[in-house]
């Protein structure tokens, strides 16, 4: 059963766990934070990969869900800090688990609303509409001053998780890593399930799916909502990592980056987002250390990848065939 892709995936998973632990005990907490960033972006991209990789839905607006997750963490924490009740007299909270749940629900609801309209269209319309809806939320966040507006919203103390000191880098990394692992397992289960079969078939041939009696629109909408939920949780983690949330989490650059991660790693591949995120973050870090103009070279590298290395890194290493 162990084919090349499985072995490769296991190796990536182990490396992503072992290196930060080693770095932590070598007294290099910065690398732990870097790995945390990789894990969180991976999770966000795993969410997008569900819509984009399995369903062929090129969402250029996933920053919306990432940002909503981030603001959920920021807003709940700020209310818990100030003691002011949220709407309906509900209090804020510092508990990550509650925050994740709320982020997931909020992300899911917004994904449902955006999907309801966007999924009536396809192709390039879908790309642009998801982008536009994300921009709408972005501008709302900028012009709505209650939670910091353009300046963003600080989280003064990282939120809490029962029995874990989240303030230290390594435990927080492990939380993020565990959530990424759960995300990957869910992705794999969904991809292999009846729903996953219908979703992947919808990408390949919508008419065929309808002709066997499965409604493609509802399959896609469900996938889009699940996808948004994953990405929203990642957003909440990201806000807690930086102890800060700002409209930049909602920006279209972030939506673009999430797509980049997936293409770098390999579209529709289980570990595509993880490999893509690792390469992207490390590249950013490495280029950033060499030159102030790292974005320029990052652009050149990305361009090279699209033009010459199709199928992403996982595709390069594990070969193209994967469909049974």
């Amino acid at each position: 059963m162990a084919n090349r892709e499985t072995i490769f995936n296991l190796a990536v998973a182990l490396l992503l766990l072992a290196l930060p632990i080693a770095a932590n005990y070598a007294g290099e907490p910065f690398y732990v934070t870097l790995a945390t960033r990789i894990a969180i972006l991976s999770l966000a991209a795993v969410g997008l990969n569900l819509a984009l990789g399995l369903g062929g839905l090129v969402s250029f607006g996933h920053a919306a869900f990432f940002g909503i997750g981030g603001y959920t963490a920021g807003i709940l924490a700020s209310h818990a800090f100030s003691g002011d009740p949220l709407i309906f007299g509900l209090p804020g909270t510092k508990q990550m688990i509650v925050i994740w749940l709320v982020a997931m629900i909020a992300g899911g609801i917004v994904a449902f609303l955006i999907g309801l309209i966007s999924l009536r269209t396809a192709g390039v319309y879908f790309i642009m509409i998801t982008l536009a809806f994300a921009q709408m939320i972005f501008y709302f966040a900028i012009s709505w001053p209650a939670y910091g507006g353009e300046d963003g919203l600080p989280i003064f103390v990282r939120n809490q998780f029962p029995g874990v000191n989240t303030l230290r880098p390594l435990p927080y990394f492990l939380i993020c890593y565990a959530l990424l692992a759960i995300g990957l397992i869910l992705f794999k289960l969904i991809a292999d399930s009846r729903f996953g079969a219908a979703l992947q078939a919808t990408r390949q041939n919508e008419v065929r799916v309808a002709s066997v009696g499965i409604p493609p629109y509802r399959i896609r909408l469900a996938a889009f909502v699940i996808s948004g939920m994953f990405t929203a949780i990642a957003g909440a983690l990201f806000a807690d990592l930086n102890r800060f949330v700002s409209p930049s989490m909602l920006s279209w650059h972030l939506s673009g980056e999430l797509i980049v991660l997936i293409i770098l790693g390999g579209v529709g591949r289980l570990f595509g987002p993880v490999v893509g995120a690792a390469i992207y973050v490390l590249l950013e870090f490495w280029l950033g250390g060499i030159t102030e103009r790292w974005q320029f070279f990052l652009g050149l590298i990305l361009l090279g990848v699209v033009l010459f290395a199709r199928g992403g890194v996982v595709g390069l290493i594990a070969g193209r065939a994967r469909h049974g």
């Binding site: 969904i190 079969a197 219908a198 066997v212 009696g213 499965i214």
Partner: peptide
């Protein structure tokens, strides 16, 4: 797998997320 898609449609729901087909 193409034919299985039809079978799963006949059996009712495609909204089953966990059991591998």
């Amino acid at each position: 797998r193409n034919v299985m898609l039809a079978v799963q449609s006949v059996q009712g729901s495609s909204f089953r997320f966990f059991r591998p087909v």
